[in-house]
């Protein structure tokens, strides 16, 4: 079986401080894979290693392998920018470019990456992306408006549209509903549920209930280690590791360092 993302002994450190300590993941294609764990345990860092956005941080050191569809993206002859188009990212704070209109927000990536030739192509791609992100209906008569007129949930869907326009294969989402109201959250979760038919989705979430609602597989990260991973139903019904059990039940305090297995 081909995995969308696989890591082999991935280690990430900031200067001397080790943040991710030798994790091995296998994320299958076209599923929603949730990464859950308490704040500050390295989930965002880990996610950014999947599209090499971590390169922006000059203190970060990465060792080990990250294989995207079988190719190690940290090997030497890799076109980093191509990877970032294939592996798109949605962030915790909805961040459509504030100085560009809704239309332009999606168009700019296409233009600057020279991904379309004609105005018609651009138009249709922008509308296609908005449609895919379940946003077209809500904005189609005001594409020249600025994102500041959108709600948090709509902004986030605009960001998703911006990413989808690049025609990626994998979507990385870093706590995408952390700053969105409950209705917007529901819309985004429904959207992800739809999108997983075509895209592999890796979702970092601070809320185990979100993982249980929409993911197929779950990985529990604690203090930089992958404590447990597996099908969502099993992890939430009968977790094997004591830490996982405590975390999903809401009784894990950040200082815990128990290595016991429940069975």
């Amino acid at each position: 079986m081909r995995y969308a993302i696989e890591t082999r002994n991935l280690r990430i450190s900031y200067g001397k401080k080790e943040v991710i300590m030798g994790v091995n993941f296998k994320i299958p294609e076209k599923v929603v894979f949730a990464l859950m764990g308490p704040s500050g345990c390295g989930k965002s860092t880990l996610l950014r290693s999947f599209n090499r956005l971590l390169d922006l941080n000059k203190d970060a050191n990465v060792s080990g392998q990250v294989l995207v569809f079988g190719r190690n993206i940290y090997s030497d002859n890799v076109d980093v920018m191509e990877i970032r188009r294939q592996v798109g990212m949605v962030f915790q704070y909805p961040n459509p470019f504030p100085h560009l209109s809704i239309y332009e927000n999606i168009a700019i990536g296409l233009r600057l990456n020279k991904m379309v030739q004609t105005k018609e192509e651009l138009d249709s791609r922008v509308k296609w992306a908005l449609e895919k992100a379940s946003l077209l209906e809500e904005v189609e008569d005001r594409l020249d408006d600025f994102p500041s007129s959108l709600s948090g949930g709509q902004k986030q869907r605009l960001v998703i549209a911006r990413v989808l326009a690049m025609k990626p294969k994998i979507l990385l989402l870093d706590e995408p509903t952390a700053n969105v109201d409950p209705v917007g959250t529901k819309n985004i979760e429904n959207l992800l549920f739809e999108l997983k038919k075509e895209y592999t989705i890796v979702l970092v979430t601070h809320e185990p209930a979100q993982a249980s609602r929409i993911s197929d597989f779950v990985g529990f990260i604690y203090l930089g280690e992958l404590v447990e991973s597996g099908p969502t139903a099993r992890i939430f019904e009968n977790p094997q590791h004591e830490l996982t059990d405590r975390y999903v039940r809401g009784i894990l305090s950040i200082g815990d360092k128990n290595g016991r297995n429940t069975n």
Binding site: A209, F236, E237, N238, P239, T244, D245, V248, R249, T262
Partner: peptide
């Protein structure tokens, strides 16, 4: 409370 894992069992 939407119990999970041991609590649910």
């Amino acid at each position: 409370y939407h119990p999970v894992a041991r609590d649910m069992r």
